[in-house]
Design a binder for these strands. Structure first.
Lengths: 111, 111
DNA sequence: TCATATACCTAATTCAATTAGGTATTATGG
DNA sequence: CCATAATACCTAATTGAATTAGGTATATGA
């Protein structure tokens, strides 16, 4: 079911950037649920990992935020900046490249 | 050329176990060169990463060592224990599973 | 009313990997 | 013949992303 968390390291930013690119503005809690759904439950992005990563991406200028009042609760949407969009594309391409290399090194067929 | 080192995190043990499984007994310096060659220069496994990992695998009982005297120099071969062989298989399978999941999440085709 | 879900967050810790060395032997080009 | 590169082992200190383990508050369904 769930993957070894070791392998997930280094992929969190890529996942989040891609989610934001495909889905447009998304709030934090929603991101964890989208990842869980897309991965059929095998990638469980905890909030302790999510929020620091989002804040890091924001500090790097790759995402920006919009606060929306929902009843008495403030919901914070995250969305890509233009640089974020470009970076999302690059990171995904890099990941594809990486798994191609790894497939060769590990001598496995990805079909 | 070289990949973002972030993505490599968590894959080092898998790479090393697979090299030892395919190649049989191999010494440390040789492992770095095999990985570099197999990856066409895009995975540069430094010795600072390699040796601690090999020692960790040894402590976990997945690899054992054989010292061979080459002239005045001691060469230390690393080879899989039976548990290491089994673990190598499992780790590679896990990695394949992981990239399948990631392909879905990132919506990319691996061909 | 009480647990569960929603929704944001952070502080402390962990631990693999990076950086930056150290030591010594063996080949090789000028 | 000598200096440099290549071979070959290693470790200590640091980094930094992720994990663990919380905290706060609102909304909802049984």
């Amino acid at each position: 079911m769930a993957h070894s968390p070791e392998l997930l390291k280094g992929t969190l930013q890529t996942i989040i950037l891609k989610i934001l690119k495909d889905h447009g503005k998304t709030y934090g809690y929603e991101i964890t649920h989208r990842v869980k759904e897309l991965s059929a439950g095998s990638i469980l992005l905890t909030e302790g990992a999510l929020y620091p990563t989002l804040h890091r991406l924001e500090a790097e200028g790759l995402v920006k935020t919009e606060k929306v009042l929902m009843g008495k609760r403030v919901r914070k949407y995250y969305l890509l900046t233009p640089e974020g969009k470009s970076e999302a594309k690059d990171r995904v391409a890099e990941f594809v490249d990486f798994i191609k290399t790894m497939s060769t090194v590990l001598q496995v067929n990805i079909a």
